[in-house]
Design a protein around this nucleic acid. Structure first.
Lengths: 114, 114
DNA sequence: GATGCTATTCTGCGTTACTATATACCGGTA
DNA sequence: TACCGGTATATAGTAACGCAGAATAGCATC
């Protein structure tokens, strides 16, 4: 899918929160999950800027663990604030996406009338 | 709805394209349509930056008409490029929103299993 | 020791929506 | 006349976000 960058603004962070909420995970793995989801163009750098932001905003707990696959991993889990932020995200998504779909539906209706 | 600014990035322009596609309209009226849709916080300035961008990218035709309600209005209609851009927007929206909803659905499934 | 995968970090960039303000036309009204 | 509110456009500056690109590092395998 061509250049969906702008449309991901404001939702990618929510996706990362959601993925972390499933159980502790780290940046590289989150990137892979997002690619599996279909956002195949996502690169590590993008995810790391998000996780660093989550750290800054105190939405996650962090634990560093060694790995036998490479350098140590930084595992993230959601704290209470992160959980709340995730719920807010889904509420916003419900609101915005329903409005956009309404606009789209009305469009179809109008076209049927034509 | 509290602070949906970031989530509107990349979709607001598409909404404006869609509204224009219904028939010629002008900035102030577009703002009102968006407010009616539910995006009540949208102000004129936001819409004007979008319409000016549409002009710059040659996606619209422009016609200035006098009004007896105030200063002259700049009426916009979509040209072929604008129509195409609108279709691209809806394709992107379908893609992104379906992926996000998939993530959400899986979430619910997992919770049911618990 | 070279290559490749895993894994994190950082800097700078471009795009976008928003804020705030200015300008202007018109009608009503005090 | 002067003022105000609604209609209407414009624009400079700001903040936030996702992304590109590069550097660094650990481990396995050849």
């Amino acid at each position: 899918m061509e250049n969906i960058t702008e449309m991901l603004k404001g939702v990618l962070e929510g996706c990362v929160l959601e993925i972390i909420s499933r159980g502790e995970t780290y940046g590289y793995e989150i990137t892979q999950r997002l690619r599996e989801l279909g956002f195949t163009e996502i690169v590590e750098g993008t995810v790391y800027t998000i996780t660093i932001r989550l750290e800054k905003n105190n939405l996650v707990n962090i634990e560093k663990k060694p790995s036998n696959m490479g350098p140590p991993r930084k595992f993230y889990t959601l704290n209470a604030a992160g959980q709340e932020q995730l719920e807010i995200f889904w509420r916003k998504w419900e609101f915005v996406s329903s409005k956009i779909n309404e606009l789209k539906t009305i469009k179809i209706k109008r076209r049927e009338v034509k």
